[in-house]
Amino acid sequence: MLWDIRQIIVFLHILLAITWVGGVFFIGWGVVPAIRKEAYTDQRRFLLALMQWSHSLLTGAGGGVIATGILLGTVFGPISRWNDIWHTYFGTIWMMALVVGILTLFWGVWIGFRYSIGVLSDAALWEAADNGDTTPLFRALAKAALLESVEVAGFVTLIVLMVFL
């Protein structure tokens, strides 16, 4: 019975990770390039609505990955004492993954998302781009991409850590 519950939690962990990472990647590398042919103000409206709609879903998925990861390492895994975290290979990798996961989610929610919403909410920036002055918008979008790349680096780090578990 315990093994069956563990398998369900592993399934949820993987499904939530696919949703979190895949959702962020799909928006950044799929949706954004696909709408580049639209007028800037149309891009702004669509992306603002998409980001606001998907934010809670992706944040929930990220939180779920962290929660199921904690369960898989402790209740359904080999970590039963604090000593196991600091004195075993699994515990050390697990703790690094936990810290990276929490920091990645924090960064995505409080830094990357907030900056992106700020850029998308600045209608004057997008209207100026529609009128030919694209430099301020492109600078703001480049900064948004740079900030979001920190989240991507967190995802890559998590995947590397999971390979070593």
Score class of each variant (00 low, 15 high):
142 A>D: 06
100 V>T: 07
140 A>S: 09
128 A>R: 15
143 K>N: 03
70 I>Q: 08
59 T>W: 01
154 G>M: 03
98 L>T: 01
63 G>L: 11
145 A>V: 07
86 W>A: 15
53 W>M: 12
99 V>K: 08
80 S>Y: 04
79 I>E: 04
110 W>S: 12
59 T>M: 06
152 V>K: 15
53 W>V: 07
116 S>L: 02
109 V>C: 00
67 A>M: 05
107 W>S: 05
124 A>F: 02
107 W>T: 03
109 V>Y: 05
115 Y>H: 07
76 F>Q: 11
125 L>H: 09
133 D>Y: 10
83 N>I: 01
109 V>E: 10
148 E>C: 06
54 S>N: 12
129 A>E: 13
158 L>Q: 07
52 Q>Y: 02
91 G>W: 13
53 W>A: 11
142 A>M: 06
132 G>D: 15
93 I>K: 01
79 I>G: 08
65 V>E: 02
54 S>M: 15
154 G>I: 00
86 W>F: 15
126 W>C: 01
85 I>K: 11
80 S>W: 05
130 D>Q: 10
55 H>L: 10
129 A>G: 11
76 F>D: 12
69 G>D: 06
127 E>N: 08
92 T>D: 07
100 V>I: 08
105 L>T: 06
71 L>R: 04
71 L>S: 03
113 F>P: 00
74 T>P: 01
141 L>C: 10
94 W>A: 06
111 I>C: 07
86 W>Q: 08
133 D>L: 13
79 I>K: 08
87 H>V: 08
116 S>K: 01
134 T>E: 13
54 S>I: 12
58 L>N: 11
104 T>S: 07
85 I>Q: 03
62 G>T: 10
157 T>A: 14
60 G>Q: 06
134 T>K: 09
114 R>D: 14
108 G>E: 00
61 A>T: 03
125 L>Q: 11
123 A>R: 14
140 A>L: 04
118 G>H: 04
108 G>F: 03
71 L>W: 02
119 V>M: 12
67 A>V: 08
57 L>G: 00
154 G>A: 03
88 T>Q: 05
97 A>S: 11
111 I>P: 11
131 N>T: 07
58 L>Y: 10
99 V>E: 01
146 L>H: 03
63 G>E: 05
67 A>R: 00
142 A>V: 01
152 V>Y: 04
125 L>E: 09
93 I>D: 00
124 A>T: 14
104 T>N: 04
67 A>I: 07
157 T>P: 00
99 V>W: 07
68 T>W: 04
136 P>T: 05
97 A>W: 05
104 T>K: 09
152 V>I: 13
104 T>E: 02
119 V>H: 11
53 W>S: 08
64 G>M: 10
133 D>I: 10
137 L>T: 09
112 G>K: 03
117 I>S: 13
62 G>A: 10
135 T>L: 15
134 T>Y: 08
72 L>K: 01
124 A>D: 15
131 N>G: 10
76 F>Y: 15
153 A>E: 00
151 E>H: 02
112 G>A: 14
153 A>L: 11
153 A>N: 00
54 S>F: 14
61 A>M: 05
54 S>R: 13
105 L>Y: 11
153 A>D: 00
79 I>R: 05
110 W>L: 13
145 A>S: 08
86 W>P: 00
140 A>E: 08
69 G>K: 04
156 V>N: 09
123 A>Y: 05
116 S>H: 06
77 G>T: 12
85 I>V: 15
64 G>I: 10
70 I>C: 08
133 D>S: 14
147 L>G: 05
88 T>M: 02
